[in-house]
Amino acid sequence: MFFDFHVHGDSRLALEARRLEYNGVAIIQSSKKYSQKKSVEIKEFDGDFRIWSGVEIYARNPEDLKKKVKKFRDKEDILIVNGGNLKINRAACEDPRVDILAHPYKNRRDSGINHVLAKKASENEVAIELGIASLIKTRLSSRARLLSQFRQIIKMHRKFGFPTIISSNAYSIYDLRTPRDIIALARCFGMTVEEAEESISKNPVNIIERNKINTVVKGVNIIE
């Protein structure tokens, strides 16, 4: 069971993902151009291939982030926060309502995650995303720098235990890759086979399962 949780597009992209032997995708809209109607349109249930909808939040500062999380949390299955700014990274790791923190290393020389952020992320079960799209599009020294940022994130993952997710951040069919190829690539930058498989199968499922339970605070669930 393989899932790709960061795909920008429409049902054509989802069909291609199904052809590449994924079992589900999450179609993500940007918070800058969000339409409620599209979110309802694309949710289909087609045999064993599921489509979820999500939103990627672009926030200017932590207060802006909190407002947007509050706004979108009830409407969408999956919440992704666009990382890169250290204050946003920190605010996202400290918020249990956030599902995924995408590319915390964007436009940075270090990896974006240190031991403080890693501990917060593992307490609040925020998944850190390793995006394959930037690996594909860069060359030479920026690609080497990206690989060392990935290694740093994996080192923190082994020590602190936050979930990792690998996704394609695809905008067209040319950005999608098959799940087995992604596992092979993950082994090249330091993950074990089990860690890589977990990142594209078990961790996405955990996110969905967690969101089905209506949680107020950790340990308190609303049943009805």
Binding site: L140, A144, R151
Partner: peptide
């Protein structure tokens, strides 16, 4: 230094050097 290392060792190995 980066160019020579990337050409000789490749992107993956150069990323391990820090």
């Amino acid at each position: 230094v980066w160019e020579t290392s990337l050409n000789f060792h490749g992107e993956c190995k150069t990323s391990k050097f820090d």
